[in-house]
Amino acid sequence: MKIKILHLYHDLMNLYGEYANISVLCRHLEDAGVEAELDRVSIGDDYSLSKYDFIYCGAGTERNLMVALSDFIRYKDDLKYYADSGKAALFTGNSFEMLGNNVFDREGKMLEGMALADFSAYQGGESYKAFIEANPEERSLADSDKRLTGDAVFTADFIDKPIVGFINKCGFIKGSFTPFLNVKYGLGNNNSEKTDGVRINNIMGTHLTGPLLVKNPPILSYVISLITGGELTEQKEYDSELLGYEVTVRELMKRFSAE
């Protein structure tokens, strides 16, 4: 079996260590005898989305997200087609904000999104002020305009183990859509909902940043089963990856349950 992977905006959307998601995925696919072919693309590059079996995009700064979206918008129809085909993709950190109707930046400017799901993203700053002014009753969605960072423990309907990671964002998203994960501890899509991210068919978006596929062997194995259509039953395991995950779960549960 051969799998083609597309890493979007690898040099622009990399808050910290996002590339490791691709490293761990390729290693585990190859361990299972699957040939993984990786293309890394960025601003101005032309490619055909439909050629790929998996798409990944990592978190970036607020400004970089706007630059990425301005470029990615020409693939709007292609991405819709990709989503309808049922193939898998993962957008981590703020990159999944591109999948909604629009993104409002910190200066208050609006960019049109990929419109796969019905929501808007507000990066804070002027867009936060404008939103609160227009919707005073929704003030609770974000009670202040500051950096929102923190460890997180999430759960998923399709994985029986906790999901751990870190949130590093500002602003909030608001709309009507199917979330990806449930918040057990930590920050969600906004203050009033205990959900994180968005799911459109097999396109997954989560606010978790960094190398979350390294930190969460259960999600890695779920993603691999989506990519390979469940054909891989046996996946090689690495002690340090599994133990690292267990230690983080233990440390976070100890911390959060004491709060």
Binding site: Y16, G17, G165, F166, T248, E251, R255
Partner: peptide, 11 residues
């Protein structure tokens, strides 16, 4: 402060 985040190891 407490955090369990080790993303930075990859940088």
């Amino acid at each position: 402060y407490f955090t369990s985040d080790v993303s930075w190891l990859w940088d």
